[in-house]
């Protein structure tokens, strides 16, 4: 059991534990915060596995932007503060399928890799990652930038207030744009 193993176990437990709390908590905001912890633990896992750039990008983008965005949405949709009782649908199908998927995959991996040791990887520097991106993966890189552009445009278009005015609410009055 090397240091790497211990770190992997600890961070893994943290990630899984907080992930479980994300999907089971009855507080909306606490779910978001548990998500932050989980994503941070995963970033730690990346560091142990030698993917440094990915780890820091994870912190920047995921924790810094995505979760913030989610919490904004929680605010804007007037989410209740404190526990809400009706946050969940029936547990059985979700438990069956989720448990089946997760445990099945885990079994698959355990069966594939058993207790094999691998050498600890070299840290992945930005230089090397950059070589890959602009070397072998340059075309996907360009495509993804176009994708980002279209996502931006799409988000703007979807947020237009006059889209909401097309449909009448039961009260019969137009919605105030958020």
């Amino acid at each position: 059991m090397t240091v790497a193993d211990v770190l992997l176990l600890a961070l893994g437990a943290l990630a899984v534990g907080s992930g479980a709390l994300v999907v089971t908590s009855s507080h909306l905001v606490r779910s978001g915060l548990y998500l932050v912890v989980s994503l941070g633990a995963i970033a730690g896992l990346y560091l142990v596995l030698g993917a440094e750039l990915v780890a820091w990008v994870q912190i920047l983008v995921y924790v810094g932007a995505v979760v913030v965005l989610l919490l904004f949405a929680v605010m804007l949709t007037r989410a209740p503060i404190g526990p809400s009782a009706d946050l969940d649908r029936p547990a059985l199908p979700a438990a069956l399928i989720g448990g089946g998927a997760g445990l099945g995959l885990a079994a698959l991996f355990a069966d594939a890799f058993r207790w094999v040791r691998y050498a600890a990887p070299e840290p992945g520097t930005a230089e090397r990652v950059g070589e890959q991106i602009f070397g072998a993966w340059v075309l996907p890189f360009e495509v993804i930038s176009i994708l980002l552009l279209s996502a931006l445009v799409g988000a703007i278009v979807l947020s237009r207030p006059d889209i909401g005015a097309r449909v009448d609410t039961p009260a019969g009055e137009p919605e105030v744009p958020a």
């Binding site: 090397t2 790497a4 193993d5 992997l8 176990l9 893994g12 990630a15 899984v16 992930g19 479980a20 994300v22 999907v23 989980s38 995963i42 896992l45 142990v48 596995l49 979700a94 399928i97 989720g98 448990g99 089946g100 998927a101 997760g102 445990l103 995959l105 885990a106 698959l108 991996f109 355990a110 594939a112 890799f113 058993r114 207790w115 094999v116 040791r117 691998y118 600890a120």
Partner: peptide
């Protein structure tokens, strides 16, 4: 390192996500 650990962690996280 035993690489099965992060694999299993990933699998469990996926299950939790589903």
């Amino acid at each position: 390192m035993h690489v099965v650990i992060p694999y299993v962690v990933g699998a469990l996280l996926f299950g939790l996500g589903v």
